[in-house]
Amino acid sequence: MRHEIWLAALTDELRRHGVGPDLAAHVVAEAAGHLRDSGEPPLRAFGPPSAYAAAVADSVGGPALSTRSSVGPVRLRAVDISKRYGRRTVLSGVSLTVHAGQVAAVVGANGSGKSTFLRICAGLVGADGGHVELHGTVGYCPQAGGTADFLLAEEHFALIGAGRGVPRSAAAREGARRAAALDWVPGDAQARHLSGGTRQKLNLVLAGLGDPEVLLLDEPYQGFDRGTYLDFWHEVWRWRDAGRAVVVVTHLLNQLDRVDIVLDLSAGGAGVAA
């Protein structure tokens, strides 16, 4: 791999790992100097860019936390939600309040009702008890589905954009920009021809189109590679910093120290927000 290509890839990976721009520039400059002086191939000297960036991020104590914007008004309030399927109680007395500028993670084992809770919050599924208040527009990203097989990505942008009152050209631009943040350039492929991960990128872009105030994301990273997974969390933090309320259903726990609220549904259907 040529030095310039490797260094450019390292720059991207450092960004993905949340290393701040000043430190990233310093690391890249040092690596470039070492490569120039030693004449070693970069892969032999440092290894793959992603691994080196991960090592740098670890050595400086994890990703840089952005300056938190202040917490705003309540955007989502779910109170005492209960849900049964037949005789099985899936949710019992679950409550969650998310303000503008907050990220909530809904965690729990398989079958603990995470997706059901999110769908109840979105109003896609009825609740047997409790109520939900939504303040503002809602963007919803399902775990699977949610796209039209025979439409192109740009047509999806136009379709969702029209619902939100976004003109077609603006929706196309915003869709392309959000796709680029996930390291994806939408092309001329119909949705049915996209890989599982790319289809989820499309789903995620559609959820954020038109800047809804509340984002409900149901394990949207299915099929993402590690780099895109990091890109996804950066997108979540950008939404939070822009004053959006974000709820992410997840079973991956390594980002939980960076969210504001954790709702654990493991305890027999009764949620515990921490």
């Binding site: 939600i81 109003g123 009825g126 109520h131 939504l134």
Partner: peptide
């Protein structure tokens, strides 16, 4: 239909 447990304040 919008489910009765959801109250939307602005937006939808």
């Amino acid at each position: 239909r919008r489910r009765p447990h959801v109250k939307i304040v602005g937006g939808l």
